Amino acid sequence: MAWVVLVLCGVLEAVWATAMGRSEGFTRLWPTVVFGVALVVSMAGLAYAMRELPVGTAYAVWVGIGASLTVVYAMATGAEPASAAKVLFLAMIIGGVVGLKAVS
């Protein structure tokens, strides 16, 4: 169950990171609200998962999922240019996350 919560909270990390960017310095109401809710739920889920999983592994997986999805979303929406190098490095992050899960 801890792994499921951790993955969902990693997705929420991408949500709050994207919402933070769209809030324009917390001057826009709804992106700021989405940021706050997603941040609190994501952190709470991370804390829950860390009760059963090693701290280093849980944090690295959470960050890896959040960072990867944030970049993929930005590239998919055209907010950030895509390149072969970026895709390669994202694959390396995902490979690292899968590797941490495999050895845990």
Rank of each mutant, 00 (worst) to 15 (best):
residue 54 P to Q: 15
residue 27 T to N: 08
residue 26 F to H: 03
residue 20 M to I: 10
residue 63 V to Y: 09
residue 54 P to E: 15
residue 39 L to S: 12
residue 15 V to N: 02
residue 31 P to H: 05
residue 73 Y to Q: 09
residue 71 V to R: 03
residue 32 T to A: 09
residue 43 M to W: 12
residue 10 G to T: 13
residue 59 Y to K: 05
residue 14 A to N: 04
residue 75 M to L: 00
residue 14 A to K: 01
residue 23 S to Y: 04
residue 79 A to M: 08
residue 24 E to P: 03
residue 62 W to M: 08
residue 14 A to T: 06
residue 60 A to F: 00
residue 64 G to L: 14
residue 42 S to W: 07
residue 22 R to A: 15
residue 45 G to P: 01
residue 50 M to V: 14
residue 29 L to I: 09
residue 52 E to S: 15
residue 7 V to F: 15
residue 8 L to F: 14
residue 77 T to Q: 04
residue 25 G to Y: 07
residue 56 G to W: 09
residue 20 M to Q: 07
residue 33 V to R: 02
residue 71 V to D: 01
residue 29 L to A: 14
residue 74 A to K: 00
residue 39 L to E: 05
residue 77 T to Y: 05
residue 28 R to T: 04
residue 25 G to V: 06
residue 28 R to V: 05
residue 55 V to M: 13
residue 55 V to A: 12
residue 51 R to S: 06
residue 30 W to E: 00
residue 44 A to Q: 06
residue 19 A to M: 02
residue 70 T to D: 07
residue 7 V to Q: 13
residue 29 L to D: 04
residue 21 G to R: 04
residue 77 T to M: 06
residue 71 V to S: 01
residue 29 L to P: 05
residue 55 V to N: 12
residue 58 A to F: 11
residue 15 V to Q: 00
residue 37 V to L: 10
residue 28 R to A: 09
residue 35 F to Q: 08
residue 17 A to T: 11
residue 57 T to K: 13
residue 7 V to L: 15
residue 8 L to P: 11
residue 35 F to A: 10
residue 49 A to D: 06
residue 12 L to G: 05
residue 19 A to G: 01
residue 48 Y to D: 12
residue 30 W to N: 01
residue 30 W to C: 04
residue 10 G to Y: 10
residue 42 S to T: 07
residue 22 R to N: 09
residue 65 I to S: 10
residue 23 S to P: 05
residue 47 A to C: 14
residue 32 T to D: 05
residue 24 E to Y: 06
residue 73 Y to H: 15
residue 76 A to N: 11
residue 37 V to W: 04
residue 45 G to T: 08
residue 56 G to T: 08
residue 16 W to I: 00
residue 23 S to T: 08
residue 27 T to I: 03
residue 31 P to K: 06
residue 30 W to R: 00
residue 52 E to V: 13
residue 68 S to V: 03
residue 30 W to S: 02
residue 37 V to N: 03
residue 57 T to S: 14
residue 47 A to D: 15
residue 75 M to V: 07
residue 55 V to E: 13
residue 21 G to K: 02
residue 12 L to W: 01
residue 69 L to C: 14
residue 13 E to W: 08
residue 68 S to T: 15
residue 20 M to L: 14
residue 73 Y to C: 04
residue 49 A to E: 10
residue 46 L to H: 02
residue 65 I to L: 13
